[in-house]
């Protein structure tokens, strides 16, 4: 974990998000490293999804700074960017807790839409594309190749021409990850990717996430309730409770942190083994 290429990718400093009188996230700071899986866990209502929405530009944080540093050293202040530019320029991709695919479009089309900005440039903002110039056709072919690569990775290659909305639930989750990866992100944010998956599918998902981390040098930030997934694959765990950060460290440290055990199991059972947090470890 202390290898040289693991530089801080995302630095969250004093992030606070208020909705009127409700403080959903309060003064949270942490870093997520390049080529690492950082998990954000916490009981229901701890502010995990709000944190995600701040990072991916769906909310503008009330207070705080979000710095994304690309491997080439370029820095982006995410809290100042409108939603679409966070994906377009800062290369942050995300998936959603309740899957958001383009249900009426085919699986392959979903992945082509993910490469919109690249293809838009190649198509000369549609003019070269309308004329059918070879530069666009080459870019289109490359985009299909990238899509095919990720379809193969998530084991959906044979379903390429299916309507995305007709896929089974687990496949839709995998497709959403493939779609996010087709936008070639440096940071991939996954909102409960294992929700609703059976144990075998969860294991496959863990494998896929590790593959993305190791082979594509992408930083992963995930919210997850499935502790078997979190504890096996995470390099770094951040625990939120009532909008505050209560623990931060590697999985083994977090699992035994009394504050975490208290948050999950309540005050009186602090001496119990960390059943919830340690389920799958």
């Amino acid at each position: 974990m202390s290898t040289a290429d693991k530089t801080p990718l995302l630095t969250v400093e004093h992030l606070t998000m208020r909705f009127g009188g409700l403080v959903a996230v309060s003064d949270v700071s942490f870093t997520a490293n390049n080529s690492e899986i950082t998990a954000v866990i916490g009981p229901n209502g701890a502010g995990k999804t709000t944190l995600f929405n701040c990072i991916t530009g769906f909310y503008t944080p009330t207070v705080g700074r979000l710095t994304l540093r690309h491997p080439d050293g370029k820095e982006y202040l995410l809290e100042r960017m409108p939603g679409f530019r966070i994906s377009k320029e800062a290369a942050v991709a995300r998936t959603f807790q309740n899957i958001r695919l383009f249900g009426g479009m085919s699986v392959l089309e979903n992945l082509m839409v993910a490469q919109h900005n690249k293809l838009m440039r190649a198509s000369g903002f549609s003019i070269a594309g309308l004329l059918g110039l070879p530069t666009y056709r080459a870019a289109d072919k490359q985009a299909v190749e990238l899509a095919t690569y990720w379809l193969d990775r998530v084991k959906l290659l044979e379903f390429a021409d299916w309507e995305a909305g007709n896929l089974p639930y687990g496949a839709q989750r995998r497709l959403e990850i493939a779609r996010a990866m087709c936008s070639e992100p440096v940071l991939l944010c996954l909102d409960e990717p294992a929700a609703g998956l059976n144990p075998r599918e969860s294991a496959e998902l863990a494998e896929l996430l590790i593959f993305i981390r190791d082979q594509h040098q992408t930083g992963l930030l995930l919210i997850e309730h499935d502790m078997s997934v979190v504890m096996t694959i995470s390099d770094h765990v951040v625990v939120l409770d009532y909008g505050r950060k209560i623990s931060d460290g590697d999985p083994a440290f977090v699992k035994n942190d009394p504050a975490v055990i208290r948050a999950y199991l309540g005050e009186d059972e602090a001496d119990e083994p960390a059943a919830a947090a340690g389920e799958g470890a």
Partner: peptide, 12 residues
């Protein structure tokens, strides 16, 4: 199909 997903994919 889904305009929020579009934003998350960097579409203006």
């Amino acid at each position: 199909e889904d305009d929020i997903a579009c934003t998350s994919l960097g579409i203006d």
